[in-house]
Structures are given as structure tokens and as C-alpha cells.
Design a binder for these strands. Structure first.
Length: 138
DNA sequence: CCAATTTGACCAACC
DNA sequence: CGGTTGGTCAAATTG
């Protein structure tokens, strides 16, 4: 399969056309809130239950078992990138610095300040999820 | 070249 | 038992 094969030229114009563009565009539209930690994306899946995309981030640290997941509506056009960030895990190293979000926890954080605190935190513009149970209702 | 990032596949848990 | 969803890892690709 090599031998040159001139036929390999470009005949493929079927797909692979707006894949990068769309992805790039989507990426551009989304704005991930910086928490002050470094994350590494390790997966992305479409959650049918909510009809939204979910991205999985893991703390870059080795001893940091903290994980972050971001979910956002799939459709990009129409504007509005509502991103829901959910933190999971327990940090243990210093922050990377940078405007976290608030509370620098200057007080005597030590002890167990961020042991079980960043659990299920929701950022972004919450519309009416005051207490949406989540039942697609039938 | 390296690192980062992406997509797919695989696995586990749950109903 | 099977199907399904969610979640994670690995490989491939791009910059």
C-alpha cells in the first residue's frame, strides 16, 4: 500500500469539512471559568439525560484527585453559552494563583477547608434551577 | 519534538 | 439477564 499510489490524491471531499470549524467555533463560544487550578481534559460525552455536552477535566497534579466537569447545551448558535461547572474530588496542593472565584480562604483554612467543600458547585447563570428536581416528567 | 487535545472504545453501575 | 448511561483511559492528531 504505498508504492506511491497516485489515486490517493484528494478525492475525499465527503466529510471532514466543517468538523474543525464547528469545533473551533464551539470552543471559541464556550468560556470556562478559571478556578485557579490547572485542569487537563480527558474526555467529552454527550449526556442524553439532559441533552447537553459534558467535558471531563482532571487536576493536573498527581496527588490531586480533584476532578472538574463542565456541561453546556449542545447547540451553539443562538448564542448563550451556559456552562455549568461541577467540582468533584479533594484538592491537596496549592492553587495556581489567579483570580479564583472568591473566598481566598485566608482564615485558618488548614484543617479541612477544602476537604469536602468543592462538591457539586454550580457556577454560571442559573436560570430557574432553584430546585428543579430533574424529572423529565413523562 | 513535545505537549496538548480530541475521538473512540471499554467498563461499570444501574434499572 | 440485558440494555443503557455515565465515566475513564488510551490512542491518534494538531498546534
Amino acid at each position: 500500500m504505498s508504492t506511491d499510489v497516485s489515486t490517493t490524491s484528494m478525492d475525499q471531499s465527503e466529510e471532514g469539512l466543517n468538523r474543525e470549524d464547528e469545533q473551533e467555533m464551539e470552543r471559541r463560544r464556550l468560556k470556562l471559568p478559571e478556578d485557579g487550578y490547572e485542569w487537563k481534559k480527558y474526555g467529552q460525552k454527550f449526556i442524553k439525560n439532559i441533552g447537553k455536552f459534558r467535558s471531563y477535566f482532571k487536576c493536573q497534579r498527581e496527588n490531586c484527585m480533584a476532578k472538574k466537569r463542565a456541561e453546556w447545551s449542545s447547540r451553539s448558535d443562538g448564542e448563550l453559552g451556559e456552562i455549568r461547572i461541577v467540582y468533584d474530588g479533594v484538592h491537596s496542593h496549592d492553587q495556581h494563583s489567579s483570580s479564583a472565584s472568591n473566598s481566598q480562604e485566608t482564615s485558618a483554612s488548614s484543617s479541612n477547608a477544602n476537604q469536602y467543600n468543592l462538591l457539586t458547585q454550580v457556577l454560571g447563570g442559573d436560570h430557574q434551577s432553584t430546585s428543579t428536581p430533574r424529572p423529565p416528567h413523562a
